[in-house]
Simulated assay, not measured.
Amino acid sequence: MQTLNDLLEHKDDPIRKKMQLQMLKVDMTQTTNSKLQVVQKNLKTKMEMSTLQTELNEVYSALLYSFKGKAQKALAQRISESAKLIVKTEQDGETFINSFKTRNT
């Protein structure tokens, strides 16, 4: 282990300073990346729509078979539009989550 005298003796050494700065950058990048992964994981679970989709599919199926003819076709069209919105929302959420990046310098 270095003593205080050793540290003070090399305090103005530019090579040592550069090395310490590089070590600090590496450590900060690793810490930031690990924290970012935690944030992304938490956001992903919050924005996940698979449980909602399952419920909606059950409701849509029940509704769809409750109607016949033109009403059933109109309902099927609206259900299709809703499904497209859900897919778009999931894609937007995924894009949002993946937009968080760390700067590697």
Rank of each mutant, 00 (worst) to 15 (best):
E58V: 03
Q22S: 00
T29Q: 08
A74T: 15
S61G: 12
Q2G: 07
G69T: 05
I15Y: 10
M23P: 00
K73C: 00
V87N: 04
L24T: 05
V38L: 08
E90P: 05
N57E: 11
E94V: 02
Q72G: 02
Q20C: 02
D92P: 01
S99W: 11
T51P: 11
F96H: 12
Q37S: 15
M47T: 05
N57I: 00
T89F: 06
Q77M: 09
T29V: 03
K17P: 03
K25S: 01
Q91S: 08
K44A: 13
S66Q: 06
A71G: 01
T95A: 10
K25F: 01
K46Q: 08
V39Q: 13
M23I: 09
K46E: 11
V26R: 14
L21P: 04
D13S: 07
K68V: 02
K35N: 09
D13F: 12
P14G: 00
T32G: 02
T29G: 01
M19E: 06
E90M: 08
L36M: 15
Q72L: 00
L75S: 06
E81R: 10
M47Q: 04
L75Q: 04
L75I: 09
V87Q: 13
V39S: 09
L75R: 03
Q72Y: 00
H10I: 14
E48Y: 11
M49T: 09
M49N: 05
V38Y: 06
L43M: 15
Q40W: 03
L4I: 12
V38S: 14
S50A: 11
D6G: 05
V59C: 00
T102E: 03
K73P: 02
F100R: 04
T95C: 04
K101R: 13
F100Q: 05
Q30L: 15
E9R: 15
A71T: 14
K44S: 15
L56E: 05
Q53R: 11
G93Y: 01
S34K: 14
T105R: 09
V59G: 00
M28H: 14
L56Y: 08
A71N: 07
T51I: 12
E94N: 13
S82Y: 12
K68M: 01
L24Q: 14
K70G: 00
S50Y: 10
S99L: 09
K35R: 12
L52H: 05
S34L: 04
K84Q: 12
